[in-house]
Simulated assay, not measured.
Amino acid sequence: MVQASEHLQVEPGLPRTPRVTYRMTDLKAALAEPGVLAVFGFGAGAPGSDDPRWLRVALESFDAPAPLELWQVDGEVTCGRDDVVRWSSGGSWLFAVIELDERECGGTEGAARKAYAALRQFMSTRGERNVLRIWNYIGDINEGDNDAERYKQFCDGRAAGLGDFFAEGFPAATAIGHHHHSRVLQIYLLASTDAGTAVENPRQVSAWRYPRQYGRTSPGFARAMVMPAQDALAISGTAAVVGHASTHEGDLEAQLNETLTNLEALLTTAGMPAGFDTHSPLKVYVRLPTDAPRVRDILQRRLPGVPVLLMHGDVCRSELLVEIDGWCFA
């Protein structure tokens, strides 16, 4: 865990963190740009491609048309497929993605177990073995009661598939529910030849120490990750949680303000300057479509000029209305 410190000092000689941008551009043109490690589109309106670097995320954007998200590295990029894993690598960085139909895996838990076992096996063959950041998109994440809730089943399956892979520490991560008609589990990651430094939020209980009420298996993720060169902070999905409890149930604006307070606490703990700027792309997941305009207005006031992609997504706790993840670059 990183403790509060002076501002981060960029480490020379280590690979620069991939540049993350949102762009209104053509997919073919985006894939042709130098150093493109990955390109993401959002929702049913996103174009199709069989390029391993491309992923159509099963989340709809409240912005129409939605921009593409690009990751770019310094260096030549190669890409391919390894069984069910698609991947690309370049400049000491690795992007890997897996998509599984739950109906072919016995449900949520089975799909998570199979996906994470496959990713663990794939990562064992790579030089970029330091997994720094993971995204999980799960259909109908809050369906089911108590331990039968789909998110809790996902956590059980993820832990079973991983085994002791993250025994030395968890990466930053996001888990959000989508509304696609098919229950596809989408998981993608960013890894490096070099290790990052996990960051915890002093306002929150670490996710892997959650009490039993949150499921048989505690979520396995760090609240954020300082990238190897100390030039960026990858921020996990962050919501209105204080200690281990959700706060401000039913109050959208109070939840959003609490979330922004948690983000600032992460920046402080990581030794980053306060606030987000025009080079700090964020994703904001909103449970209720009717809340999206209000969320946009609040964020434009609180975070002027910050690139924000507003998505229709369900937070892993049904009482939480909004969650934010993203990047802050030094």
Rank of each mutant, 00 (worst) to 15 (best):
A222P: 10
H244F: 13
L14R: 07
Q300A: 14
W327M: 08
V286R: 01
D74P: 01
V57G: 04
E76C: 11
D145G: 14
P211E: 10
C155E: 02
L94I: 03
W54V: 02
G48T: 04
P293S: 10
G45H: 08
L267H: 14
D156N: 14
V315H: 13
M1C: 15
L70I: 15
E69L: 12
A240H: 04
N142W: 03
R302L: 05
T125N: 04
V322R: 04
P171A: 04
V131D: 00
G48N: 00
H180Y: 07
L94E: 02
A232T: 15
Y285Q: 03
V20G: 02
E99I: 12
A274H: 12
L260A: 00
E109D: 13
W135K: 05
D325Y: 04
D140N: 10
T268N: 05
R223E: 15
T261P: 00
I134E: 14
T278D: 13
E149M: 06
Y137S: 11
N130F: 02
P281W: 05
L321F: 01
D50Q: 08
L55A: 11
C155V: 02
A195R: 05
A175I: 14
P65W: 13
C328E: 02
P12S: 04
E99G: 08
V97C: 10
A175P: 03
E168N: 05
L132N: 07
P47Y: 01
G144A: 13
V295T: 05
S206K: 15
N201P: 12
A32V: 12
R223M: 15
C105Y: 08
V97K: 03
A32H: 14
A32W: 12
L68N: 07
T108Y: 07
S246K: 09
L37A: 06
I138Y: 01
P52L: 01
I187T: 09
Q230T: 14
S5Q: 10
F170W: 07
Y22I: 06
D101K: 13
P52S: 07
A198D: 13
L320M: 05
L263A: 01
G220V: 07
A160L: 13
A112R: 04
L162T: 07
D297R: 14
E102K: 07
I138P: 00
R113P: 02
D82W: 09
Q230F: 09
